[in-house]
């Protein structure tokens, strides 16, 4: 049953005061790349931890002229992505799309689309844990101090210990990186494969952590360097020789899938919108 938001609720759900606060915070975030700017963070009609930070950013930006794409794990049709799109549609007249090249705003959880973000687009990340130093320090008060003093020895030591123990850095997704040679930031749980796309890009990247109440940003053409050692360089995920069984691509991020009946392992594009377009291209002579 769909609640009639249009009559009962504000344009873009939030009251204007809330939007202004998010906007002021976002402008500050853009002026200090990678720094987590605190904001009040309203409770949204979706769960805390289910994309409320990204959603608040989207709602502070969106107008009827916008075209919105929402993905979860790269997938437009994932239920949470659909749910977020549905909410935005219920309180705005904005159009929605699965085509990342048509979108003006893209809200994402855990992926960056394969086609690079353009200057006229904004990519909005849902962030569960915005503090990259949390893995070495539990207290917010202390991590804030560490950032202030640019004291990043703890996290470097953690990476070094990883190498001693495992022979390589064991961080999978959400790989920490340095923004504008000043702040270490969490890129949200995108795969390492996506991290280099943040470096000196054409588009603007906004990060919203609703439960942890932080907004941060990577402006265009900003240095983003994954933490690594000279002799242990940063590595992205390996898909050596694997191809997508739907579009045949061998240069995209792939999901590993098991066939229920045969137990056979195969691969499929994680970016479903892009995969769809490639399939269409393959089938048009």
């Amino acid at each position: 049953m769909q609640a009639h938001l249009k009559q009962t609720y504000n344009y873009a759900f939030l009251d204007e005061g809330s939007k202004k606060e998010i906007r002021r915070t976002t402008l500050k975030a853009v002026a200090i790349p990678g720094y987590q700017v605190p904001f009040a963070s309203r409770e949204m009609p979706i769960g805390r931890g289910w994309g409320t930070g990204g959603l608040q950013l989207t709602l502070s930006l969106i107008g009827d002229q916008d075209c919105l794409k929402v993905i979860d794990q790269g997938n437009d049709d994932s239920v949470n992505a659909v749910s977020i799109k549905k909410l935005v549609q219920s309180c705005t007249e904005a159009e929605v799309t699965t085509d990342s090249e048509r979108a003006t705003l893209i809200q994402t959880r855990h992926r960056i689309p394969e086609v690079p973000i353009r200057a006229d687009q904004i990519l909005i990340f849902q962030v569960p844990l915005p503090e990259p130093l949390r893995m070495v320090e539990a207290k917010e008060r202390k991590t804030k101090q560490l950032h202030a003093e640019m004291d990043y020895s703890g996290i470097w030591l953690r990476l070094y210990e990883d190498i001693v123990k495992w022979g390589k850095i064991s961080i999978g997704a959400d790989y920490p990186a340095l923004a504008h040679k000043r702040y270490i930031f969490a890129p949200s749980p995108i795969p390492r494969y996506d991290l280099p796309k943040l470096n000196r890009a054409d588009g603007l990247f906004l990060f919203g952590a609703g439960r942890e109440k932080k907004i941060y940003a990577i402006p265009p053409y900003t240095d983003v360097e994954p933490l690594a050692f000279d002799d242990y360089p940063f590595e992205v995920e390996h898909f050596d020789g694997c191809t997508c069984r739907l579009c045949g691509s061998n240069d995209t991020f792939l999901d590993e899938i098991f066939d229920e009946t045969t137990g056979q392992k195969f691969y499929q594009c994680s970016d479903t919108g892009n995969c769809q377009k490639r399939q269409e291209k393959r089938h048009t002579p």
Binding site: G47, R48, G49, W50, T52, D72, Q73, G74, S78, N80, R109, H110, R111, P128, K168, S170, I171, G172, A173, D174, P189, I190, P191, R192, Y193, R211, E237, H238, F253, D255, E256, S270
Partner: peptide, 21 residues
């Protein structure tokens, strides 16, 4: 409640990345 229950959302990108490591 939000954060504990968000574990119901798919996490296969992070899991894939972990598997790779």
């Amino acid at each position: 409640n939000g954060f504990v229950s968000h574990l119901k959302l798919p996490h296969y990108i992070t899991f894939q990345s972990k598997l790779d490591v």
